[in-house]
Design a binder for these strands. Structure first.
Length: 553
RNA sequence: GCCGGAGUAGCUCAGGUGGUUAGAGCGUCGGAAUCAUAAUCCGCAGGUCGGGGGUUCAAGUCCCUCCUCCGGUACCA
């Protein structure tokens, strides 16, 4: 297997989607698509790589979603888990496993992790006063308490902050507190929590992050902000029914805090993956050797958990690898404003894949990925990218080459004759394209990778125009054959280079070329692998035009 | 409020450590071509880089200030 720097294998994760609703394309832009493109590229490049993801299914918000929808928590997570999983498949996300945190393996793994820290006496107990709703029979999370702000008198302050005066509040400070959900007046009740001593890990975390010179500045800056304020210890248990039970006698009724438990899902799902493969010990290779490159893809809302909290947990446990990188994206907004599930202003992935070519969706998102700042998704952009780029540039090149070849060379690859300057130029440019695009993927620059790949297709169209095979065929058939040979070889190159972003199209091109997926190797992308006389399959249209009425809702 | 990010061509976006006439794609307009899903190729035009002030020989880039938008602010995830 190929090495990636000092590493012998790569472990890619995409942030576990929370199962209280349908995934929208903002989630795709934030973590799923970059993770998938990276995973696909890494496979082509020949690395030993696994790609892990699954549904995050516990916690307060699931319990609330259940109340709102009038379903049980199990029904809620089943509803969204299976719907989302299906949509991911239709989008071509190539997870090696897509599991869920409600699986028993996960509970066991999370409990073992908790006990490991507990037995090392790293955790401590603290008694606190919290608001408890008798009617709802549960403690209320800070932001699910509303009341009057003690500072400015604003009547709709929540238990975490007052959005009128901006003060940070605690629920106990609120005057006349009520449950946001039911309007019930809560009572003050004592509860015991287990705390993780995050404060003790600040110095180690700072040192660790200082060594990460190749991380995105947005991630580093975000962490520095937290260090400046000073990290505080965090409660890692909740008085809640819906979660992984705290594995200590006498603590019935407590569950492990979701943000302690969920990232452990990456580990438990890796265990499941190898258990399914009949190699139950092999997950250790990925999590317990220093030569594993762990890369966590996520949106900016998750930075705190993946760059500070989870690494601190891993440091405390000490048996597992820490992330090599945490390439966080910003957000993809919709037509100028933030996507929100609750406000109905969002493009749900399940709806999008039903209506449009998944590769068109992938391309539209990838070419406008929020790598450095929030970006906007517009339906007219999807249409324009599909019609003017995918169809007109890529689809058209493949089509004109195949149709021409069918007409004049009977659908067989013509023999490559002697090369002229113009042929050598484009052939010789391939290797640098392949290397440049690889380097973009290696450095998490997905937008650059995609646009540079399309640039090669532009060069190909120019080559076709400049060599004018429709004229040459009338005077010099052998020369024309050489030109078409090169054009068809280029189609093979596109199939490889576009696989990370357009996997379905890539498979179609390979099928048209009548070559096996064995050819999907990054280093084959600059080689002329099609032998003269090779029989091709009939061409098909790669991208249908999207008409105006199709993007009007 | 505090911390962090963003504001660059009609549109969507690039522009480490300040350095020649500020870039790309798409769109517009003009031309070439007719193999191809009227799809391609070439060329032109288009920007006082959010406002104002400052440092510097030199500022999209550094400093100050103001405006707008976004994220976080530790029990939503």
């Amino acid at each position: 297997m190929k090495k990636s720097g000092k590493y012998n294998r790569i472990l890619v994760t995409a942030a576990l989607p929370y199962t209280n609703g349908y995934t929208h394309i903002g989630h795709v832009a934030g973590s799923f698509l970059p993770a998938d493109m990276y995973a696909r590229y890494s496979r082509l490049a020949g690395y030993d790589i696994i790609f892990i993801c699954g549904s995050d299914e516990y916690g307060t918000a699931i319990a609330l979603a259940a109340i709102k929808e009038g379903l049980s928590t199990q029904e809620i997570i089943d509803k969204y888990h299976f719907a989302n999983k299906k949509a991911y498949e239709e989008l071509g996300l190539s997870f090696d496993i897509y599991s869920r945190t409600s699986n028993p393996t996960h509970a066991k793994t999370a409990q073992d992790f908790f006990l490991n820290l507990y037995n090392k006496k790293l955790l401590y107990k603290k008694t606190e006063k919290q608001l408890y709703s008798e009617k709802e029979k549960r403690f209320l999370a800070d932001r699910f308490v509303v009341g009057t702000c003690p500072i400015c008198g604003f009547e709709e302050a929540t238990g975490d902050e007052c959005e009128n005066c901006g003060s940070a509040l605690s629920p106990l400070q609120l005057i006349d507190p009520k449950s946001k959900l039911t309007g019930d007046t809560p009572v003050i009740k004592e509860t015991v929590s287990y705390y993780f001593p995050l404060k003790d890990y600040q110095a180690k975390l700072e040192k660790w992050l200082d060594s990460k010179t190749d991380w995105k500045p947005n991630v580093i800056n975000y962490c520095k902000g937290w260090f400046k304020t000073g990290l505080q210890d965090r409660s890692i248990t909740r008085e809640l029914e819906w979660g992984v039970p705290v594995p200590i006698e006498g603590e019935e009724g407590k569950v492990i805090y979701i943000w302690f438990e969920a990232p452990i899902g990456y580990i438990s799902m890796t265990k499941e993956l190898f258990a399914q493969k009949g190699e139950p010990e092999k997950w250790k290779e990925y999590w317990q050797s220093d030569d594993t490159k762990l890369v966590n893809f996520l949106g900016k809302d998750n930075i705190i958990f993946h760059a500070i909290f989870f690494p601190a947990m891993l440091m405390a446990h000490s048996d597992f690898v820490l992330a090599d990188n945490v390439p966080a994206n910003e957000f993809m907004n919709l037509e100028g404003s933030k996507q929100s599930k609750s406000k109905g202003h969002a493009i749900l992935l399940k709806d999008a894949v039903e209506k449009f070519n998944p590769d068109s969706i992938r391309y539209a998102i990838a070419s406008n990925m929020p790598e450095n700042k929030d970006t906007d998704f517009y339906w007219v952009d999807l249409q324009a990218k599909n019609n003017n780029e995918l169809g007109a540039i890529l689809g058209n090149f493949v089509n004109r080459a195949f149709v021409f070849n069918e007409k004049y060379f009977g659908g067989k690859v013509p023999v490559l004759g002697s090369l002229e300057e113009i042929d050598k130029n484009i052939i010789n440019s391939l290797k640098s394209y392949v290397e440049r695009i690889a380097s973009y993927y290696e450095n998490y620059k997905f937008k650059d990778a995609v646009s540079e790949t399309m640039n090669l297709v532009r060069d190909a169209n120019k080559y076709f125009n400049d060599t004018e095979p429709w004229k040459v065929v009338k005077e010099d058939e052998a020369r024309c054959g050489t030109i078409l040979n090169i054009c068809l070889q280029l189609c093979n190159t596109f199939a490889i280079l576009f696989d990370p972003v357009l996997p379905f199209t890539s498979a179609k091109i390979l099928n048209m070329l009548n070559v096996s997926t064995e050819n999907l190797k990054w280093d084959k992308a600059y080689e002329l692998t099609l032998p003269g006389g090779h029989k091709l399959n009939a061409p098909e249209i790669l991208f249908k035009k999207i008409e105006d009425h199709e993007i009007e809702k």
